[in-house]
Simulated assay, not measured.
Amino acid sequence: MAYNLALVNPFNAKESADYDEISRSWLDAWKEKSKKIMPSPSESDSKNSSPSFKEDGIKRLRDDDEEEKAHPSKTQKTSTIISKYISKGCLVSGGPAAEQLVSFIRTLIGDGDRIYVLGHCEPGSSVLMSSEEKGKGQTVNAKELARFFDVLFGLNKSYAGKIKIFGCHSALGLGDTKSFAEQFKDAMRKREYHNCTIEGYTASVRGYDGEHKVAFIGTAEELKRAQMAEILYAEETISKAKLDSFYENKTARPSTRRVSFA
């Protein structure tokens, strides 16, 4: 089924520890998929053809990333960060370039449309975080995120698609505390968004690995060992085969660990 796909990072890129890595993994994966959906122009047409809207959007987002690195902004309040990233640092995969994100999201209404929100999370968390390290980076709570979509994005009240909180354990509560995804669902209902479905994940999730998103379904200890292995691999201390061994039989598609809050 064809649908519109939007990927939103509500934090300042320089203050979001994994922004660059995650956004590029999604970009690269979508670029590969878009080749199958919209083949590149033939050699005979290439000189006179402009890039497809998918390829052009990818290029312009990469240009935004470079500009952000060249002119890092100072730490800002959450509302300012969200406002800034309506025009820069957000991605519509396969759709318009970043600066057109607001007008694009306002057109979304169908039950096949998807909006992914990136951020770090944990069981029972009241906020999404830009960094896994507590006390660092920015945070946004469920009410602020709901206001983001209602006031700043102007998402249609009749939107019948899904908003997925693509953060680790975003669908897990803790004791009597609801999960972040459910808190967000409640906040959206108070703003009269009654047709959309909010989804979260019960596993540790990350961006694309090849053409597919990945969830880690091992134990917390196994996850720590795998994360340490990632550091050692980056330092060229261990081989790729050794790194892969830490993930063997412990990964799955995130969809197998997804929970819907209708």
Rank of each mutant, 00 (worst) to 15 (best):
E192Y: 12
K164S: 06
R189Q: 15
T251E: 06
G154E: 09
D45W: 11
Q183W: 07
F104D: 03
G137W: 01
H169F: 13
E235Q: 15
I165E: 04
Y233D: 00
R189M: 10
A97V: 06
L172V: 14
G173R: 08
K213Q: 15
D65W: 13
E192S: 15
T80A: 14
G112P: 00
R189G: 05
A29D: 01
D45A: 14
F261I: 06
S255N: 03
A171G: 07
K134A: 08
Y201T: 00
D176A: 14
C90G: 13
S34L: 14
L7H: 07
P123G: 06
S83I: 06
F216G: 03
A181W: 01
M129H: 11
N141P: 13
I82E: 08
P41T: 07
I58S: 01
A29L: 02
L232A: 13
V205N: 00
P39T: 10
F153G: 03
D244R: 12
E99D: 15
S179G: 10
K164I: 11
S103E: 12
A234D: 14
E144D: 15
A252Q: 03
G175K: 07
L155M: 11
E32Q: 15
L152C: 10
I115F: 01
S239M: 05
Y116L: 12
T202Y: 00
L155T: 04
I231F: 03
S25N: 04
S245P: 05
H71G: 02
D18V: 09
F148G: 03
A252H: 02
K185V: 03
D244K: 15
Q183N: 10
S126W: 12
N141C: 15
R24G: 00
T107W: 01
S73P: 04
E66S: 11
Q76F: 03
R206H: 04
T219C: 10
A70D: 13
K14Q: 10
T75K: 15
D18P: 00
Q227A: 02
G124D: 09
G124M: 11
G112C: 02
S23C: 06
A171K: 04
L145C: 10
A70V: 03
I217K: 09
G110H: 09
N48F: 11
Y116I: 09
K190H: 13
H169Y: 13
V205S: 00
F11V: 01
D244H: 11
S25C: 02
K134R: 12
E235G: 07
L174H: 14
S83K: 15
H120N: 01
L5D: 05
S170H: 04
G167V: 01
K77V: 11
E236W: 02
G110V: 00
T251W: 02
S204W: 10
S239G: 04
Y85F: 07
T78A: 13
P72H: 11
T219L: 10
E66I: 12
H212A: 14
Y193R: 03
A2W: 07
A13I: 03
Q183R: 15
K88L: 07
G112Y: 01
S52F: 00
G119I: 03
Q227S: 01
D56F: 09
E67C: 05
F53T: 07
F246C: 06
D150K: 15
A262S: 08
Y247D: 02
K31F: 08
N249Y: 12
I165V: 15
S16F: 00
K77C: 10
A29M: 09
P39W: 09
L108F: 05
